[in-house]
Write a protein that binds this DNA or RNA. Structure first.
Length: 477
RNA sequence: GCACGAGUGGCAGAGUAGCUAUGCAACGGACUGCAGAUCCGUGUACCCGGGUGCAAAUCCCGGCUCGUGCUCCA
């Protein structure tokens, strides 16, 4: 049963097309002019979730996401710093890649850059001009909306008229050479001192929208299965892409499926630099750790807006902590390869699959994960190693491979192994302390018993008195 | 103004017609010297008003409120 994914274009959930050799996915990436923020992380994780889910089911995927490494904002930043624009871009790209790796976002199959795609961009613009969809003006080349009015509003439901009357004077001021304010730039003629490339239309740089059309074409040809990005890109960016690609190559639809993730607000307000409520990814990772941040971002389904606040982080920290702790507490149990003979695990698996197939409902997936964590904690408490082993296997697959909330299995093994090694190292010591404490307890010498518990605690060990005697575990890894 | 979306228990957040969502938090109890883990139990949750249905959080109509987009934005 293939994934049903919400298609912005039809506003319904639709099965994605898996009939081809591979599913092609293109996500609009970042403009690297400043450190990455948690909104970038959410977008990357949303598409990572899609890619992981398809691959987990054995579907071949080719995933490409780009860097817009030339833009007005990058030029501004480079002027401010007095460095080359590429230095600004490279620095923030590297920052982004590092952060995304820490967040367990799998590498894309390619990361095209605008500055390395100029040729394809120019060639598309030439075609559009030749076909009469674009015109040269004094300050650049523009796409003429009126040449394909029926394509307006494919994603946002707006019509030409609505945009003409709406938005007041805000749109009228941009793009001096436009014939109509709804036209958009394909090529911008450079001002003195700006980075620029030769083209038949004069030295300049690409407009924002054309680059993605060109890069999609370069990597996937005329059509792509799934295309998307943040929901703020629907208009005008993605609608502009539809104009460009469909008019240039005579295909329709250019993207079979449009996927858009929801935005992040901070303490109930839109996250923005002017409000001073901006969270960079590295700040957020420093605050709670990468896996807790990822948990917080997949706890809500990808299309829902997220309000980023302290309560959200506390909740994520607590719940993710329970996940990790349950696995560590399982000690050195082997990771089971299959678990379908345990009914509750099978049910949890079925429900998770149903949830993920229904528009990547990670919230349902996490609910099932939480019930397995609970089961594992019970198994740990009752020392039921075979159930514990099955639970750890389940979690490794679904919390790990699918949701990306755990290190990969090898690291997980290592983590569990290290915990058990350290356990072995101090076993003798701890057990003798426990024996001492047991003696004190039998004499009802509670002060001494508590003192010994404090000593044990300093070894990084938590003890719990239970029916079957006192069990102990490492506080953390 | 126009477009799109959303309003579920203390919080986060599933659920498209009838069966306990889940987790955290809270409260009561069991077990405990204490602590912790675990177990059992508790909370009359579905923005408002109509309508359709044997039955509605779930469908329809109307209203209210909120968010986002219409300008660079993940």
């Amino acid at each position: 049963m293939p994934l049903r994914l919400f298609n912005t274009s039809s506003r319904t959930k639709q099965e994605i097309d898996v009939s081809g050799e591979e599913v092609t996915i293109y996500a609009c990436g970042i403009t690297p002019y400043s450190p990455s923020h948690i909104g970038h992380a959410r977008q990357a994780i949303a598409f990572d979730t899609l890619v992981r889910w398809l691959r987990f089911q054995g579907i071949r995927v080719r995933y490409v996401t780009n860097f817009t490494d030339i833009s007005d904002t990058i030029i501004d930043a480079s002027k401010k710093e007095g460095v080359d624009f590429l230095e600004v871009a490279n620095r923030h790209i590297s920052d982004y890649r590092i952060s995304m790796n820490r967040l367990n976002v799998l590498d894309a199959d390619a990361y095209p850059r605008v500055t390395e795609s100029i040729e394809g961009i120019i060639s598309m613009i030439e075609t559009l001009v030749k076909k009469g969809h674009a015109y040269l003006a004094g300050d650049g080349v523009y796409f003429e909306i009126d040449t394909a009015p029926e394509k307006y509003g494919r994603l946002t439901g707006q019509t030409l008229e609505m945009v003409r009357s709406g938005a007041g004077g805000r749109v009228a001021s941009t793009g001096a050479g436009k014939r109509d304010h709804r036209d958009f730039a394909l090529w911008k003629i450079a001002k003195p001192g700006e980075p620029s490339w030769d083209s038949p239309f004069g030295r300049g740089r690409p407009g924002w929208h054309i680059e993605c059309s060109a890069m999609v074409h370069e990597h996937f040809g005329h059509q792509v299965n799934i295309h998307g990005g943040g929901s703020d890109l629907m208009f005008p960016h993605h609608e502009a892409e539809i104009f460009q690609s469909e008019c240039c190559f005579n295909v329709e639809p250019f993207a079979r499926h449009w996927m858009h993730n929801g935005m992040i607000n901070v303490d109930g307000e839109k996250m923005s630099k002017s409000l001073g409520n901006f969270w960079t990814v590295s700040d957020a990772i420093d605050a709670v750790g990468p896996m807790v941040l990822r948990y917080a971002l997949v706890n809500a389904p990808y299309r829902q807006p997220i309000d980023f606040n302290q309560v959200l982080l506390d909740d994520a920290e607590k719940n993710h902590g329970r996940l990790i702790e349950s696995i560590i507490s399982a000690g050195g149990v082997s990771i089971a390869r299959q678990w379908s003979d345990i009914e509750s695990l099978k049910n949890a698996e079925d429900s998770l699959i149903r949830g993920m197939d229904d528009d990547l409902n990670t919230r349902v997936a996490i609910a099932e994960m939480q019930s397995v964590v609970k089961m594992l904690r019970q198994a740990n408490s009752s020392q039921d190693h075979s159930v514990a082993s099955a639970c750890v296997g389940w979690l490794s697959a679904y919390a790990g491979d699918v949701l990306g909330l755990l290190p990969d299995e090898e690291s997980l093994q290592r983590m569990v192994g290290q915990a058990s090694e350290r356990r072995d190292e101090i076993r003798e010591k701890v057990e003798s302390f426990i024996a001492m404490r047991e003696e004190a307890r039998s004499e009802r010498n509670w002060a001494e018993a508590d003192r010994i518990r404090d000593v044990i605690s300093e070894l990084g060990v938590v003890i719990e008195d239970g029916e079957s005697g006192t069990i102990w575990r490492m506080k953390d890894l």
